[in-house]
Simulated assay, not measured.
Amino acid sequence: MAAYFSLILVLVTLGSGLIWLLDVKVFKPKRLASLSAAQSNGQISEEAAAKITQEPAIVETSRSIFPVIAFVLVLRSFLWEPFQIPSGSMMPTLLVGDFILVEKFAYGLKDPVWRNKLVETGEPKRGDVAVFKYPVDTRIDYIKRIVGLPGDTIRYRNKQLYIKPACDSGENCQDFQLVSRSLVNRDEYFQGPYPLTRYTEQLGEVSHDILVNTQRPDPIGMFFQEDGVPRGDFVVPEGHYFGIGDNRDNSTDSRFWGFIKDEHLVGKAVAIWISFEFERSEDSLLPTWIPTGVRFNRVGGIS
């Protein structure tokens, strides 16, 4: 249902607007003409006049909801849209239960149905946390951190991220650069029985934290492979981006399914507007989707 929400919103907005417009241009003048004719034949009561000019229920409903849903359509399609974080692939930056605000105009204004770009407003930058349509199934929204830009070569080996920036000529071209990181702590988070190591990573101008499971070997055999490129290296094509989760060993991302097309980009995650805890025990009488608490300390911008 969520995958078709934009289409449903457009259809409801269009339908209610057309009904209201048709009434204003066609049926309302006819009702007023009927009232005028009735009054010319003699005085009529206010009740009779109100009955003659009364709007049909569908027109009254359309007139009431059109401004509201039109505002929601514009807001959601071109400005900001709320999303919920359903998994831990972006921990510790984003946790399950975080509700984030996505800036829809960050990567171009797109129509809400066919997603054709109408106006160029910007492109993803290295380090952005981006929402996009999952390339394997575009009905699903994914969120990852952009680490590779068009023309870059990304290498992921032994829990380390390397970037060879795009270069048009052989002059001043850089080789692979190890993305620097510093240890924060261990044992704060766990993946099953395994403690995760937390680092602060410096990705261009963006400083953010990541989690690494040092007990788990990299699943190199499952990595996406391009023709003529060693497994574990990824050459980002033009018009595409490479996204990876901050929870490096608990994220299905570009390492496994490839690249993010520009046309699949939804927007940039810019803030957490509310965050709920869902730590209800199995014997609780309340359903698991009811929050157990609010994490006010998580409200704010996303880095």
Score class of each variant (00 low, 15 high):
173 C>Y: 03
158 N>V: 00
82 P>K: 08
99 F>E: 01
78 F>A: 02
157 R>K: 13
133 K>Q: 15
101 L>A: 14
134 Y>M: 09
159 K>G: 08
120 E>Q: 13
115 R>G: 07
71 F>W: 03
155 R>P: 01
117 K>D: 03
126 R>I: 06
174 Q>A: 14
162 Y>D: 10
184 V>L: 09
113 V>W: 06
100 I>G: 08
158 N>E: 13
141 D>Y: 11
91 M>Y: 08
134 Y>C: 04
154 I>W: 03
78 F>S: 02
149 L>S: 02
129 V>R: 09
101 L>K: 11
143 I>P: 06
136 V>M: 12
160 Q>R: 14
104 K>L: 05
172 N>F: 11
86 P>Y: 08
164 K>L: 07
184 V>D: 04
70 A>H: 04
116 N>L: 12
159 K>M: 03
140 I>E: 08
124 P>S: 03
150 P>G: 10
111 D>L: 10
80 W>G: 07
101 L>Q: 09
72 V>P: 00
184 V>N: 08
68 V>C: 05
83 F>T: 05
160 Q>W: 05
93 T>V: 11
153 T>F: 00
80 W>A: 14
94 L>H: 07
123 E>L: 09
170 G>T: 08
105 F>H: 10
178 L>P: 00
90 M>N: 15
94 L>D: 02
125 K>E: 14
181 R>I: 06
152 D>G: 08
71 F>T: 15
138 T>F: 08
184 V>G: 01
143 I>D: 04
106 A>N: 02
76 R>P: 00
129 V>Q: 07
165 P>K: 06
145 R>L: 05
131 V>K: 08
76 R>Q: 05
98 D>W: 13
70 A>D: 00
166 A>T: 01
68 V>P: 04
164 K>T: 06
115 R>C: 03
96 V>I: 15
70 A>Q: 01
177 Q>L: 15
68 V>N: 04
79 L>K: 05
144 K>Q: 09
120 E>H: 10
116 N>F: 15
